[in-house]
Design a protein around this nucleic acid. Structure first.
Lengths: 194, 194, 194, 194
DNA sequence: TATGAATGAGGGTTCATTCAT
DNA sequence: TATGAATGAACCCTCATTCAT
């Protein structure tokens, strides 16, 4: 039962994701989405209150992929700076991959009444990074920091911001610089953690 | 008669420009545009084949403003590096000013089947820069370069690209760096012209 | 089992009744009704063939309330004219109380193909009044009447009709006249029973 | 040009009027209305802001019919009491004729934000009655009344209210009483004008 | 019996585009 | 050239009804 629910929700979300990736938010019609998903028009509204309600769901989907991918790259016992490198690499990679969708996700934030939804989406990510900071502190890799939850948010924030700044402009010819850019970012965070 | 044409065309273009600046491309309706322009619905289609045909016209309009402004800042006899500085400053200023519109102009390129239209729009700009390079060469400010038209395109290209990379990301907190960024760009071009 | 059926049926009917009282027939959606009733969407269709099938059920419900209330007010041995007074008072009271619902119940008659359903609903009411007439005849309160069942229908009919005429017009300012109106009605029936 | 506009507006209004007369407001769909009117879906919205915007238009239409019919029945030089008789007769006749539509017109008043629209619709009617009162006063048929515009509104108001009270209940069997009812109403106004 | 996810026709409305004037 | 009424497809969304469980 639960699995079938998952399936329909995922079908719609996947279809919406692809459709919006190709045509942007405005031009991706609900009827195209449901046709692509192979479900009825009304089914869409069983899972989403409105067309725009899909925006945070897509954001969540991207972030989940991000968390999965990061977790897969990190081994138990990795030092915090290696983890930061992974965070940077994967955030840049996913921002690059999902460029088009991220663009309207972020402008979509404005539409959304409450920060709460976004907080909910990010919470597991924040908590995982916070945990890693905690472990690093216990292993004396980094000094004792006052409020770890804030530190986690700051690190995630600066990495995402940098990736978006880099990729959301449409020109991909300067990608030679991305390594330098990422190195600068890494050094910044490294210093911030000393 | 010609003047009246100019007038109607300009009225519509101005209205479209403002409307799209405020609401984006999709949400700016033709009926809003014509109302703002003070012309009839059908008149729109005397000057534009379709709603999306306005996109290159807006690009042209911005570029014309760019050319005008650059020409006003440049005096006869200015050396080529001063001119490059003007190009950089004005390109950055206009990209900043027209951020919103430029965003969909560039995504609009994709819609358009042929590069030809964009080539046409840019041609006078390219030619003017090419002329300046020519003069600089004759005045021995720069060495003898093989294909001047390519050099002009490269210079314009790299400046626009940089400005867009800088401004089209939404975060305005890093604006302190713009001068450094521009200086790097200038040095790059300067070396390229030695 | 029977009791549980009763319960679900009543839950749905009550919910429908309230919902339609508040929003009218068209705007009361089945999904709102089942939510209010605390049952599943499909359960509705176990008890009602369609949304409009609820209309005669509501009529029945009102009429049942009517019969109950009348029976409670009437004592064994009451003379027929006292009973007529009770009928008038209670019919007017219930028509007043359920104004909104009665309005679309009566326009709903049009939807319904057969009078049969309405006949079925009214039968117990008719029979009870007929019984009372029978008793009155035996006690010589009224003369010997030919077809008692018709007399019963006529009496119930004229009372309901009068109450609806009085209340279904929205203007409540003339309510001072209700007693005169009811008295006229009573006299009419009284004469008809002599 | 003006005539064609009249035509389309009238076509839609007529179709809406008939459709709503037959099915009520909710069940009369815009698509049915435009089909009946023989115009395109979008054309509806050239003349009405929304489906509910048709409600005051229908009210206006009925009132216009009312004014026309009254003017045709009244001769120059008729005394004011004859005119009042005509007003009563015609108001009752039209309320009877348009029962169904009037029902939701009046509940539709609630939906409408401003009294202004209704004031505008009624103004010509008010003014015509006021004029007749003015003439009656000059001919000494009635005593000198203070604010004629108020008197006009009161007379129109009481007649409409009475007609609606009488007809909006669905039962037509008591129409024998209508003449008495109207006579009472006439006497009331007659006394009010002495 | 009871569920509730799924359906899809139909709702009101918008809007790019056309065409007779 | 200029108009703007007219078009109708497509938009997002609702809801009575069905059906596999």
């Amino acid at each position: 039962m639960n699995e079938k629910q998952e399936t329909k929700y995922q079908l719609i979300l996947d279809a919406a994701f692809e459709q919006m990736k190709e045509n942007g938010f405005e031009k991706a019609s609900v009827s195209q989405i449901v046709k692509r998903a192979g479900v009825a028009q009304g089914t869409f509204y069983l899972y989403f209150d409105s067309k725009s309600a899909i925006v945070p769901a897509i954001a969540e989907r991207i972030l989940c992929e991000q968390i999965d991918v990061v977790r897969n790259e990190v081994r138990d016992g990795d030092d915090i700076l290696s983890i930061v490198r992974v965070l940077i690499d994967q955030t840049f990679a996913l921002t690059d991959k999902h460029r088009e969708v991220i663009k309207f996700c972020y402008s979509g934030i404005a539409y959304y009444d409450s920060f709460q939804r976004w907080e909910d989406i990010y919470r597991p990510y924040y908590e995982w990074v916070e945990l890693k900071l905690q472990e690093a502190m216990e292993k004396k890799e980094i000094p004792s920091l006052s409020v770890l939850s804030y530190q986690a948010k700051l690190i995630i924030g600066i990495i995402e911001q940098s990736a978006e700044t880099y990729y959301l402009a449409s020109d991909p010819t300067k990608e030679e610089n991305v390594d330098i850019y990422k190195e600068e970012l890494f050094q910044f965070i490294k210093r911030a953690l000393s």
